[in-house]
Design a protein around this nucleic acid. Structure first.
Length: 493
RNA sequence: GGUCCGAUGGCCGAGUGGCUAGGCUCAGCUCUGCAAAAGCUGCUACAGCGGUUCGAAUCCGCUUCGGACCUCCA
């Protein structure tokens, strides 16, 4: 494809991407609720939109990427008097709610860094936008789509659906929803089970609460995303992303709120949903007890893991599947990713030392680069991109083996393409396996050259014992010796 | 119960009407003091049944199995 196409969840079509105000692009992604450590499934979603962000920038768009932090707890249960998650955690650990928020926000940021996921342009918090949320509720009430009961405000879905479509994104119909709504525990003040809260009254035991025209309380969960996306990206903007599990009710309610407050019929042009990471076919989730943290993954300290894996291995593993498909976690898949990534890294290294042919080249480096673009243009198809990169690997290794001829220009093009797609777009950075802190690179390199040289002498003398000992010891330190026709060389990893 | 989605070789995972996906694994070969790496070759699949078509993994129907959402969720 010669232009970027995106699968739009709203229309269920693959559509050509045309920003509202090129070269600017506005993108909003639902961030985490910071009441616990993020697990790997969460990471997958943020990785998905990291790729979108990176590729849009690669294409030259000026992207304003907004990803919120949900730091209001919301309710643990379905009842009107449920405790909020952050408040509950604060009580359990004897902390201020904001201490809980800060702790898990820090954790979230650390994890994002470890996986080389870029920071958004703006990272707004729900608590920082209480005023805007209250203003938004007033507008919705004024427009006739919300009502107040005992200090709480609810959105009237039925009233809204008389004037506007509701359920378009998730493909739900009001009548079906009616029949399938579960009976709530406790009585609800809602006039209709389909209604959702914009503002909840809080009693004195509730730790996080703010004054409002309706009394002390806190905002409903869906509202913050509507308000913050509108504030920073406008009443209509280009891309809204999030996990598949947020499609309903969260995103559906967001649309209703935006339309209800601002009257804009289609606030978001392209809706994108990342699919779930599964374990043994089931969604990774805290409640399932099958989730593990990035730290457990890296150390391998978890019953589901045979060993630890590096962050880049995990990143590569996730990118080997398309974001819109479920991806099943398994040790074998991780191991395959580990080896595949090592092969890729090794080829990049080989590429940098490759001697160009003096004659004609027989590899079309330009076509290779275009193929990489085509893969990403087709709805960010990272598995195809990776498969294409391996075609480049084959050419590089073929050149090293003397089977493929690459001109200096070909090599330069290959280097630029690997830099652009492997490093910049896929965000796969080289992981140093050397024991850091042991002097500078060139010094170590000179020593290794000397050792390899000594081993070559030993080999020439058929002193296999010495030669093998050098190889084994270096290997134990992560240095691999390669013997070729024209002598030996070393590499890390 | 309702809505939606999926089922691809030993494993993971693309593809969506005709053309090699790719990675990993396994076997053989080349290279090599041995090994590793690399290269070459092989194993070559589309849940089942029926239909549409010159032609289907790809479209339609049914069956079986699995999953997501309908409640907080990335």
């Amino acid at each position: 494809m010669d232009a970027l196409h995106i699968s739009n969840s709203l229309t269920r079509q693959k559509e050509k991407f045309e920003p509202i105000n090129p070269p600017f692009v506005g993108m909003y992604v639902c961030g985490p609720t910071v009441y616990s450590n993020v697990h790997l499934g969460n990471v997958r979603t943020f990785l998905t939109f990291d790729i979108v962000y990176r590729y849009l920038q690669h294409l030259g768009f000026k992207v304003r990427y907004v990803r919120n932090i949900t730091d209001v707890g919301h309710l643990t249960g379905d009842t009107d008097d449920g405790e909020d998650k952050i408040g509950k955690k604060a009580r359990l650990e004897n902390l201020e709610p904001m201490e809980v928020v800060q702790r898990y926000t820090n954790d979230f940021h650390d994890v994002m860094n470890v996986f080389n996921i870029l920071r958004p342009s703006i990272e707004p918090t729900a608590t920082g936008h209480i005023v805007e949320q209250i203003e938004s509720i007033k507008k919705i009430i004024d427009n006739g789509y919300a009502y107040e009961v005992n200090g709480s405000v609810y959105f009237s879905v039925r009233k809204f659906s008389d004037d506007h479509p509701y359920g378009e994104l998730s493909g739900r119909k009001i009548d079906e929803l009616m029949n399938n709504t579960r009976d709530l525990d406790g009585q609800s003040e809602k006039r209709d089970p389909l209604d959702f809260a914009l503002w909840k009254a809080a009693d004195s035991s509730h730790l996080m609460q703010w004054p409002s025209p309706w009394g002390m309380g806190f905002p409903g969960w869906h509202l913050e995303c509507s308000v913050m996306s509108t504030k920073y990206l406008g009443e209509t903007f280009d891309i809204h992303g999030g996990g598949m599990d947020l499609k309903f009710p969260h995103h559906e309610c967001e649309i209703a709120q935006n339309v209800g407050a601002n009257g804009v019929e289609r606030p978001v042009r392209y809706w994108m949903h990342g699919n779930m990471l599964t374990v043994n076919g089931r969604k990774m989730a805290k409640s399932e007890g099958n989730g593990f943290t990035p730290e457990e993954l890296i150390t391998g300290n978890h019953k589901l893991l045979d060993k630890g894996y590096t962050p880049m291995t995990v990143r590569f593993f996730m990118l080997m599947g398309h974001y819109a498909s479920t991806l099943d976690f398994s040790n074998e898949a991780l191991q395959a990713a580990e080896k595949g990534l090592a092969k890729l890294e090794k080829a990049v290294d080989t590429l940098n030392r490759l001697a160009p042919t003096s004659g004609e080249g027989n590899f079309d480096a330009n076509a290779f680069g275009e193929k990489c673009h085509a893969a990403m243009n087709d709805d960010f198809n990272t598995p195809i991109l990776i498969a294409t990169l391996f075609e480049g690997v084959k050419a590089i290794n073929g050149a090293a083996a003397g089977l493929v001829a690459l001109t200096a220009q070909d090599i330069a093009t290959l280097q630029a393409t690997f830099q652009a797609f492997m490093r910049d777009v896929l965000g796969l950075q080289a992981e140093s396996t050397s024991n850091a802190g042991g002097g500078d690179e060139s010094e170590t390199g000179a020593l290794l050259d000397l050792i390899v040289d000594m081993r070559t002498t030993a080999k020439a003398n058929k002193d296999w014992g010495t030669a093998d000992k050098i190889r084994d010891v270096l290997s134990a330190h992560g240095i691999t010796i390669q013997d070729g026709k024209d002598g030996s060389s070393w590499s890390r990893g």
